[in-house]
């Protein structure tokens, strides 16, 4: 099976500092992969480089056979790469429905506004936002806005969906609901890259785990083996993390 996304030797520097160094990563179609690492490890930078927000200084990125390292972000989005932001990015004065309609219209390839609106209604129902469809996006709760981000991403009909800390700031019940949603999205066949702090989320949904530390990819493999890797746990997630995980019975 060929890779959906293939990064080779990707490097990104900010003012001489290497935020990403020589990253090699390959994601297969339909995989759910967890991306973990301490704060400042370069997780969001990696997503930004893949989506074209930043341009890599070196290396190649191939998506579905097409080189995307120097492509404009809107074109990358139309190829089927979607993401959510750590800090949500709605169109505040538009309603929830309008937000998703816009996504379906441009990234989702809808032929007309009417068709995009139908698709949007479908995605809102999927994400449990139908009740809120008429509200301005600015009036949603944080959990609601995170769902809106998901609905917008789904409206792009993504082949690859990168979820950047979708659960940050949510309470446990909201996290459970979001997880259930992610599992259902995965069941539809999209490749998912889950960028997470919360171990519970990653271990419940991902089979494969990738670990970033100081801009380097230090581990890549099945969840169990990466997590049992002493060096990963101690050196890169910290001792306290290790203890917490032990306490959680993982």
């Amino acid at each position: 099976m060929t890779a959906l996304l293939e990064l080779k030797g990707v490097t990104k520097r900010f003012r001489g500092l290497e935020a990403l160094s020589d990253i090699n990563l390959s994601l297969k179609s339909g995989e759910i992969v967890g991306l973990i690492g301490p704060n400042g490890a370069g997780k969001t930078t990696l997503v930004n480089v893949i989506t074209g927000v930043h341009t890599a200084d070196a290396g190649s990125i191939t998506f579905n056979g097409a080189p995307i390292a120097h492509m404009r972000r809107d074109r990358i989005a139309r190829l089927g790469v979607a993401r959510t932001f750590q800090v949500v990015q709605p169109f505040p004065a538009m309603t929830v429905l309008e937000n998703v309609t816009a996504a379906a219209l441009f990234g989702g390839g809808a032929a007309s506004i009417a068709e995009a609106r139908d698709a949007a209604a479908h995605h809102l129902a999927f994400c449990g936002l139908t009740d809120q469809a008429g509200k301005p996006a600015a009036n949603l709760t944080l959990a609601g806005r995170k769902r809106l981000e998901l609905a917008k991403s789904l409206a792009l009909r993504p082949k690859l969906l990168m979820l950047d800390e979708v659960n940050a700031g949510l309470n446990p019940a909201e996290v459970d609901a979001a997880l259930e949603l992610i599992t259902r999205i995965a069941a539809q066949g999209a490749t998912i890259l889950l960028i997470e702090h919360l171990m519970k989320v990653v271990t419940r949904t991902a089979r494969r785990l990738v670990v970033l530390h100081h801009g380097k990819l230090i581990a890549d493999g099945p969840v169990a083996s990466v997590l049992s890797d002493e060096t990963v746990v101690e050196a890169y997630l910290g001792r306290r993390y290790a203890e917490r995980m032990a306490g959680a019975g993982i």
Binding site: Q89, T101, A102, A103, I113
Partner: peptide, 25 residues
């Protein structure tokens, strides 16, 4: 009423987000 209008409103409100949903800004 057109795609262009929707794109422009997206740009006015959040240009980065517009690009991420595939608007050729």
């Amino acid at each position: 009423r057109s795609r262009l209008g929707v794109a422009l409103r997206c740009i006015a409100q959040n240009e980065d987000a517009a690009q991420i949903i595939g608007v050729d800004t």
